[in-house]
């Protein structure tokens, strides 16, 4: 009945470093369940991350893990996948790491449609470095570097990924734990770039400054504003104001995968 997470975690690593109420632990549990569902051999699975709270995740997992430079998770993962196309490569990271500092690597990994699974934990802020605003901080919200409210418009990570050419794009929240492992499982099985955006909470750096009185307030916001894709089709734009869609947003199985294309090119060059 109780799920055995401990066999996937390096001995002696718990309790983890994340703050009380931080949703990253929920995502990590989802990732472990998805890896178990796909029966991934941990010796043939690389988990790559950049820098940040969310990027601490590979340190806990008992698999081949790579903790790289800030924002460069997608770049390093592309390298791992190109060197060993048979390896399952999963990237994890936060919104600042993935879309601001590593924005360039992120969009180009999407464009190539290389067979990676990228789990982005969007907690709307740079948590680890002291609560600076990220491209995902909602307009008007407070961060340590925007004491009068964030003037910038927001990045929609899923739309960015679709626009950049990723072939599997899904969104869920930390309040939907069953959906997290379902979507990550689909992403791992998908041949091509899979982006799973998980909306998360940061009670310490974001909630405290923005009048979320407790972790529960932030969690309830995630739960109440999530609208499944099918339900959203029947709703008017006014009803969808301030909500976000969850579920599989885009899935294309037609486009060729990069490693296969590259292998074909190598063979063509060898035979020329």
């Amino acid at each position: 009945m109780a799920y055995d997470y401990e066999s996937s975690i390096r001995p002696g690593k718990l309790p983890h470093i994340w703050c009380p109420g931080c949703g990253h632990g929920i995502v990590m549990k989802g990732l472990i369940r998805a890896m178990d569902t796909c029966e991934l051999d941990r010796k043939n699975t690389a988990i790559v991350s950049g820098i940040g709270c969310a990027s601490r995740l590979p340190g806990y997992l008992d698999a081949c893990t790579l903790h790289t430079a800030h924002g460069r998770a997608a770049a390093f993962a592309t390298g791992v996948k190109m060197a060993k196309p048979g390896m399952n490569v999963i990237c994890v990271g936060g919104d600042g790491d993935g879309t601001a500092i590593g924005g360039n690597h992120f969009i180009h990994a999407c464009r190539r449609n290389i067979d990676l699974t990228y789990v982005i934990m969007n907690n709307y802020i740079y948590g680890m470095t002291g609560g600076q605003f990220s491209p995902c901080t909602p307009t008007g919200m407070l961060a340590s570097t925007t004491p009068y409210g964030n003037p910038d418009p927001v990045f929609d990570i899923s739309k960015l990924a679709i626009g950049a050419g990723a072939t599997f794009v899904a969104r869920t929240t930390a309040m939907h734990p069953r959906q997290i492992d379902k979507l990550i499982t689909q992403g791992i099985k998908h041949k091509g770039m899979a982006i799973i955006e998980v909306l998360d909470d940061c009670p310490t750096s974001y909630g405290r400054r923005n009048k979320f009185r407790s972790v529960i307030d932030m969690m309830k916001r995630l739960k109440d504003n999530a609208v499944p894709v099918k339900a959203a089709a029947k709703m008017t734009p006014e009803q969808l104001e301030g909500k976000f869609l969850t579920g599989v947003l885009y899935h294309d199985t037609e486009l060729p995968e990069y490693c296969e294309q590259y292998e074909a090119l190598t063979k063509k060059a060898q035979n020329a």
Binding site: Y3, Y5, W18, G25, I26, A174
Partner: peptide, 14 residues
């Protein structure tokens, strides 16, 4: 509770 606990601290045994 087990699914939502971020800290791996709660387990429900059958």
């Amino acid at each position: 509770c087990e699914l939502l606990c971020p800290d791996f601290a709660i387990k429900v045994h059958d």
